Computed example of a mutant assay.
Amino acid sequence: MPRDSLGHNAEGPSDKTVWVLKFEALDGEPIALVVNYAVHSTVVFGTGEVSGDLAGAACRYIEDHIDDHVEDHHDGGAVALWTPGPLGDQAPRVNLGLPFGVAPTERQKARAYAAMDAQGLIVGAEVLRVAASLTGLTSSVRIGAEQRTVPCPVKAGRDVMPSMRQELVDTVPLRLALITLADVALAGVSGEVVTDVYRHLAARSPLARTLLISIANDRIGYLPDDARFDRPVHSVNGCPIARGHAETAIVEGVSDMIARRLGRPLRPVPEKAL
Protein backbone atom coordinates (compact mmCIF):
# COMPACT_ATOMS: atom_id res chain seq x y z
CA MET A 1 0.00 0.00 0.00
CA PRO A 2 1.45 3.44 -0.89
CA ARG A 3 2.48 5.42 2.17
CA ASP A 4 -0.10 8.19 1.67
CA SER A 5 -3.08 6.13 0.49
CA LEU A 6 -6.32 5.73 2.43
CA GLY A 7 -6.07 2.56 4.51
CA HIS A 8 -4.84 0.98 7.74
CA ASN A 9 -1.78 2.51 9.38
CA ALA A 10 -0.84 0.69 12.59
CA GLU A 11 1.76 3.36 13.42
CA GLY A 12 -0.56 6.34 12.98
CA PRO A 13 -1.95 8.43 15.87
CA SER A 14 -5.05 6.99 17.53
CA ASP A 15 -6.82 7.80 20.79
CA LYS A 16 -8.48 4.70 22.27
CA THR A 17 -10.03 6.56 25.22
CA VAL A 18 -13.74 5.91 25.76
CA TRP A 19 -15.33 8.80 27.66
CA VAL A 20 -18.49 8.06 29.66
CA LEU A 21 -20.86 10.47 31.42
CA LYS A 22 -23.39 8.78 33.69
CA PHE A 23 -26.77 10.19 34.65
CA GLU A 24 -28.91 8.42 37.22
CA ALA A 25 -31.86 9.05 39.51
CA LEU A 26 -31.36 9.74 43.22
CA ASP A 27 -32.23 6.11 43.95
CA GLY A 28 -29.46 4.91 41.62
CA GLU A 29 -31.72 4.01 38.71
CA PRO A 30 -29.86 4.56 35.40
CA ILE A 31 -31.19 7.38 33.23
CA ALA A 32 -28.59 7.79 30.48
CA LEU A 33 -25.00 7.28 29.44
CA VAL A 34 -23.24 9.75 27.15
CA VAL A 35 -20.49 8.04 25.16
CA ASN A 36 -17.63 9.73 23.33
CA TYR A 37 -15.34 7.66 21.13
CA ALA A 38 -13.20 8.34 18.08
CA VAL A 39 -14.23 6.07 15.21
CA HIS A 40 -16.19 6.42 11.99
CA SER A 41 -19.49 4.54 12.03
CA THR A 42 -18.78 3.10 8.59
CA VAL A 43 -18.63 -0.66 9.06
CA VAL A 44 -21.52 -1.27 6.65
CA PHE A 45 -20.90 1.83 4.53
CA GLY A 46 -21.36 0.82 0.90
CA THR A 47 -24.25 -1.60 1.40
CA GLY A 48 -26.70 1.04 0.16
CA GLU A 49 -28.78 0.55 3.31
CA VAL A 50 -29.57 3.04 6.08
CA SER A 51 -28.16 1.95 9.43
CA GLY A 52 -27.04 3.23 12.82
CA ASP A 53 -23.87 1.27 12.05
CA LEU A 54 -21.22 0.81 14.75
CA ALA A 55 -22.58 3.61 16.96
CA GLY A 56 -26.08 2.17 16.76
CA ALA A 57 -24.86 -1.34 17.56
CA ALA A 58 -22.92 -0.07 20.58
CA CYS A 59 -25.89 1.91 21.88
CA ARG A 60 -28.24 -1.05 21.47
CA TYR A 61 -25.87 -3.24 23.47
CA ILE A 62 -25.53 -0.59 26.17
CA GLU A 63 -29.29 -0.06 26.47
CA ASP A 64 -29.93 -3.80 26.58
CA HIS A 65 -27.44 -4.36 29.41
CA ILE A 66 -27.22 -1.05 31.29
CA ASP A 67 -29.40 -2.39 34.12
CA ASP A 68 -27.53 -5.68 34.57
CA HIS A 69 -25.40 -4.42 37.47
CA VAL A 70 -28.26 -2.58 39.25
CA GLU A 71 -30.19 -4.58 41.83
CA ASP A 72 -34.00 -4.24 41.81
CA HIS A 73 -33.96 -1.94 38.80
CA HIS A 74 -37.25 -0.77 37.32
CA ASP A 75 -36.33 -1.08 33.65
CA GLY A 76 -36.92 2.62 33.18
CA GLY A 77 -35.70 2.72 29.60
CA ALA A 78 -32.25 4.21 30.18
CA VAL A 79 -30.73 5.51 26.95
CA ALA A 80 -27.25 5.69 25.45
CA LEU A 81 -26.21 8.81 23.53
CA TRP A 82 -23.25 8.34 21.18
CA THR A 83 -21.05 11.33 20.32
CA PRO A 84 -18.27 11.03 17.73
CA GLY A 85 -14.85 12.00 19.05
CA PRO A 86 -11.82 13.02 16.93
CA LEU A 87 -12.64 10.52 14.18
CA GLY A 88 -11.18 12.31 11.15
CA ASP A 89 -8.38 9.74 10.83
CA GLN A 90 -10.06 6.78 12.57
CA ALA A 91 -11.83 4.00 10.65
CA PRO A 92 -13.35 0.86 12.19
CA ARG A 93 -10.92 -2.04 12.37
CA VAL A 94 -13.18 -4.27 10.24
CA ASN A 95 -15.60 -2.94 7.62
CA LEU A 96 -17.23 -3.86 4.31
CA GLY A 97 -14.03 -2.84 2.56
CA LEU A 98 -15.30 -2.57 -1.01
CA PRO A 99 -14.24 0.16 -3.46
CA PHE A 100 -16.73 2.99 -3.95
CA GLY A 101 -19.49 2.06 -6.37
CA VAL A 102 -19.04 -1.72 -6.11
CA ALA A 103 -22.26 -3.47 -5.09
CA PRO A 104 -21.77 -6.07 -2.32
CA THR A 105 -23.08 -9.60 -2.44
CA GLU A 106 -25.55 -10.77 0.22
CA ARG A 107 -22.75 -12.75 1.85
CA GLN A 108 -20.54 -9.67 2.00
CA LYS A 109 -23.42 -7.70 3.53
CA ALA A 110 -23.97 -10.37 6.16
CA ARG A 111 -20.29 -10.36 7.06
CA ALA A 112 -20.29 -6.55 7.36
CA TYR A 113 -23.30 -6.55 9.68
CA ALA A 114 -21.71 -9.27 11.80
CA ALA A 115 -18.59 -7.11 12.07
CA MET A 116 -20.78 -4.12 13.00
CA ASP A 117 -22.44 -6.01 15.86
CA ALA A 118 -19.13 -7.45 17.09
CA GLN A 119 -17.38 -4.08 17.22
CA GLY A 120 -20.45 -2.46 18.76
CA LEU A 121 -20.38 -5.10 21.49
CA ILE A 122 -16.70 -4.44 22.18
CA VAL A 123 -17.20 -0.69 22.60
CA GLY A 124 -20.51 -1.10 24.41
CA ALA A 125 -19.09 -3.57 26.92
CA GLU A 126 -16.21 -1.22 27.71
CA VAL A 127 -18.67 1.67 28.21
CA LEU A 128 -20.65 -0.40 30.71
CA ARG A 129 -17.46 -1.43 32.53
CA VAL A 130 -16.42 2.22 32.87
CA ALA A 131 -19.92 3.30 33.90
CA ALA A 132 -20.08 0.65 36.63
CA SER A 133 -16.77 1.92 38.06
CA LEU A 134 -17.89 5.56 38.33
CA THR A 135 -18.45 6.69 41.92
CA GLY A 136 -18.93 9.97 43.73
CA LEU A 137 -21.71 11.28 41.51
CA THR A 138 -23.17 14.65 42.49
CA SER A 139 -26.66 16.13 42.36
CA SER A 140 -25.33 19.69 42.14
CA VAL A 141 -23.91 20.63 38.74
CA ARG A 142 -23.20 24.06 37.29
CA ILE A 143 -24.05 24.15 33.58
CA GLY A 144 -22.70 26.62 31.03
CA ALA A 145 -22.84 26.99 27.24
CA GLU A 146 -21.29 29.11 24.53
CA GLN A 147 -20.71 29.05 20.80
CA ARG A 148 -18.75 31.02 18.24
CA THR A 149 -18.11 30.95 14.50
CA VAL A 150 -14.61 31.46 13.11
CA PRO A 151 -14.32 32.42 9.40
CA CYS A 152 -11.35 30.58 7.88
CA PRO A 153 -9.73 31.00 4.44
CA VAL A 154 -10.71 28.35 1.93
CA LYS A 155 -8.51 25.65 0.45
CA ALA A 156 -9.70 23.67 -2.57
CA GLY A 157 -10.26 19.95 -2.09
CA ARG A 158 -8.34 17.38 -4.16
CA ASP A 159 -9.13 13.78 -5.11
CA VAL A 160 -12.16 13.71 -2.81
CA MET A 161 -15.36 11.68 -3.01
CA PRO A 162 -17.96 12.93 -5.54
CA SER A 163 -20.36 13.69 -2.69
CA MET A 164 -17.90 16.20 -1.18
CA ARG A 165 -18.84 19.38 -3.04
CA GLN A 166 -17.23 22.76 -2.36
CA GLU A 167 -18.69 26.22 -2.97
CA LEU A 168 -16.63 28.97 -4.60
CA VAL A 169 -16.27 31.25 -1.57
CA ASP A 170 -13.43 33.09 0.18
CA THR A 171 -14.04 31.79 3.71
CA VAL A 172 -15.72 28.82 5.37
CA PRO A 173 -17.43 29.13 8.78
CA LEU A 174 -15.90 26.86 11.41
CA ARG A 175 -18.44 26.45 14.20
CA LEU A 176 -17.30 25.86 17.76
CA ALA A 177 -19.70 24.98 20.59
CA LEU A 178 -19.18 24.39 24.29
CA ILE A 179 -21.22 22.86 27.09
CA THR A 180 -19.67 22.67 30.56
CA LEU A 181 -21.01 20.34 33.24
CA ALA A 182 -19.08 21.04 36.46
CA ASP A 183 -15.47 20.13 35.55
CA VAL A 184 -16.35 18.44 32.25
CA ALA A 185 -16.24 20.26 28.92
CA LEU A 186 -18.09 19.02 25.82
CA ALA A 187 -16.52 20.80 22.85
CA GLY A 188 -18.33 20.61 19.52
CA VAL A 189 -16.60 21.25 16.19
CA SER A 190 -18.37 21.38 12.81
CA GLY A 191 -16.04 18.99 10.98
CA GLU A 192 -14.17 15.69 11.25
CA VAL A 193 -11.34 16.47 13.63
CA VAL A 194 -8.20 14.28 13.58
CA THR A 195 -6.46 12.79 16.61
CA ASP A 196 -3.54 15.20 16.97
CA VAL A 197 -5.76 18.30 16.93
CA TYR A 198 -7.64 16.84 19.88
CA ARG A 199 -4.41 15.93 21.67
CA HIS A 200 -3.23 19.52 21.33
CA LEU A 201 -6.60 20.78 22.60
CA ALA A 202 -6.50 18.42 25.60
CA ALA A 203 -3.01 19.68 26.47
CA ARG A 204 -4.07 23.34 26.21
CA SER A 205 -7.52 23.20 27.85
CA PRO A 206 -7.90 24.32 31.49
CA LEU A 207 -9.99 21.18 32.11
CA ALA A 208 -8.47 17.70 32.13
CA ARG A 209 -11.89 16.32 31.24
CA THR A 210 -12.30 17.94 27.84
CA LEU A 211 -14.24 15.86 25.31
CA LEU A 212 -14.29 16.76 21.62
CA ILE A 213 -17.39 16.08 19.56
CA SER A 214 -16.84 16.06 15.80
CA ILE A 215 -19.52 16.97 13.23
CA ALA A 216 -21.45 19.12 15.72
CA ASN A 217 -23.91 21.59 14.13
CA ASP A 218 -22.48 21.04 10.62
CA ARG A 219 -20.01 19.00 8.60
CA ILE A 220 -17.65 21.16 6.57
CA GLY A 221 -15.13 18.39 5.88
CA TYR A 222 -11.97 17.02 7.46
CA LEU A 223 -9.98 19.15 9.92
CA PRO A 224 -6.35 17.91 10.13
CA ASP A 225 -3.50 19.26 12.24
CA ASP A 226 -1.11 21.65 10.53
CA ALA A 227 1.80 19.17 10.42
CA ARG A 228 -0.30 16.75 8.38
CA PHE A 229 -0.39 19.19 5.44
CA ASP A 230 3.12 18.04 4.54
CA ARG A 231 1.56 14.79 3.23
CA PRO A 232 -1.23 14.43 0.63
CA VAL A 233 -3.38 12.25 2.90
CA HIS A 234 -7.16 11.87 2.67
CA SER A 235 -7.90 14.21 5.58
CA VAL A 236 -5.82 16.99 3.99
CA ASN A 237 -7.31 16.48 0.53
CA GLY A 238 -10.80 16.71 2.03
CA CYS A 239 -10.09 19.74 4.23
CA PRO A 240 -11.76 22.99 3.04
CA ILE A 241 -9.58 25.27 5.21
CA ALA A 242 -6.10 26.57 4.39
CA ARG A 243 -3.16 25.38 6.46
CA GLY A 244 -2.48 27.27 9.68
CA HIS A 245 -6.08 28.12 10.54
CA ALA A 246 -8.29 25.16 11.53
CA GLU A 247 -6.04 23.69 14.24
CA THR A 248 -5.37 27.07 15.83
CA ALA A 249 -9.05 28.05 15.70
CA ILE A 250 -10.11 24.80 17.41
CA VAL A 251 -7.37 24.55 20.03
CA GLU A 252 -7.23 28.22 21.01
CA GLY A 253 -10.93 28.94 20.42
CA VAL A 254 -12.29 26.11 22.56
CA SER A 255 -9.63 26.58 25.27
CA ASP A 256 -10.42 30.28 25.47
CA MET A 257 -14.16 29.64 25.83
CA ILE A 258 -13.51 27.19 28.67
CA ALA A 259 -11.05 29.52 30.41
CA ARG A 260 -13.32 32.56 30.27
CA ARG A 261 -16.46 30.67 31.28
CA LEU A 262 -14.84 28.97 34.29
CA GLY A 263 -12.36 31.71 35.18
CA ARG A 264 -9.38 29.40 34.85
CA PRO A 265 -6.04 30.09 33.14
CA LEU A 266 -5.02 28.32 29.97
CA ARG A 267 -2.32 25.73 30.27
CA PRO A 268 0.95 26.64 28.49
CA VAL A 269 1.22 25.81 24.80
CA PRO A 270 2.93 22.41 24.63
CA GLU A 271 6.19 22.35 22.72
CA LYS A 272 5.62 21.63 19.00
CA ALA A 273 1.85 21.38 19.56
CA LEU A 274 0.91 24.34 17.40
Results as ranks from 00 to 15, higher is better:
residue 216 A to M: 12
residue 91 A to W: 14
residue 227 A to P: 00
residue 203 A to Y: 00
residue 42 T to E: 11
residue 241 I to F: 04
residue 143 I to M: 09
residue 144 G to D: 10
residue 228 R to T: 15
residue 271 E to W: 04
residue 255 S to Q: 08
residue 99 P to E: 12
residue 236 V to G: 10
residue 91 A to V: 10
residue 217 N to W: 04
residue 146 E to Y: 06
residue 240 P to W: 12
residue 87 L to C: 13
residue 172 V to E: 11
residue 138 T to L: 05
residue 33 L to E: 03
residue 138 T to F: 03
residue 76 G to Q: 14
residue 89 D to K: 06
residue 178 L to Y: 04
residue 38 A to Q: 02
residue 215 I to C: 08
residue 99 P to G: 11
residue 4 D to C: 09
residue 106 E to D: 14
residue 8 H to P: 02
residue 28 G to Q: 09
residue 4 D to H: 15
residue 76 G to P: 00
residue 221 G to A: 11
residue 25 A to P: 00
residue 46 G to L: 04
residue 47 T to H: 03
residue 39 V to L: 08
residue 115 A to C: 02
residue 262 L to D: 02
residue 116 M to P: 00
residue 117 D to P: 00
residue 135 T to W: 02
residue 228 R to Y: 08
residue 225 D to S: 15
residue 129 R to E: 15
residue 77 G to T: 11
residue 178 L to M: 15
residue 108 Q to R: 14
residue 142 R to Q: 12
residue 128 L to E: 08
residue 90 Q to I: 15
residue 71 E to S: 13
residue 106 E to G: 00
residue 58 A to W: 04
residue 8 H to W: 15
residue 267 R to A: 06
residue 242 A to P: 00
residue 31 I to D: 03
residue 213 I to P: 00
residue 72 D to V: 04
residue 80 A to C: 15
residue 251 V to Q: 04
residue 61 Y to F: 15
residue 154 V to F: 05
residue 198 Y to G: 05
residue 59 C to Y: 01
residue 246 A to T: 14
residue 242 A to C: 04
residue 231 R to A: 10
residue 138 T to R: 12
residue 226 D to G: 06
residue 53 D to F: 07
residue 91 A to L: 15
residue 243 R to M: 12
residue 210 T to G: 07
residue 119 Q to K: 06
residue 252 E to H: 14
residue 210 T to W: 07
residue 84 P to T: 14
residue 99 P to H: 12
residue 63 E to V: 03
residue 165 R to Q: 13
residue 237 N to T: 07
residue 93 R to F: 11
residue 257 M to I: 07
residue 201 L to Q: 05
residue 192 E to L: 07
residue 38 A to G: 02
residue 212 L to S: 07
residue 126 E to I: 03
residue 171 T to I: 01
residue 2 P to N: 13
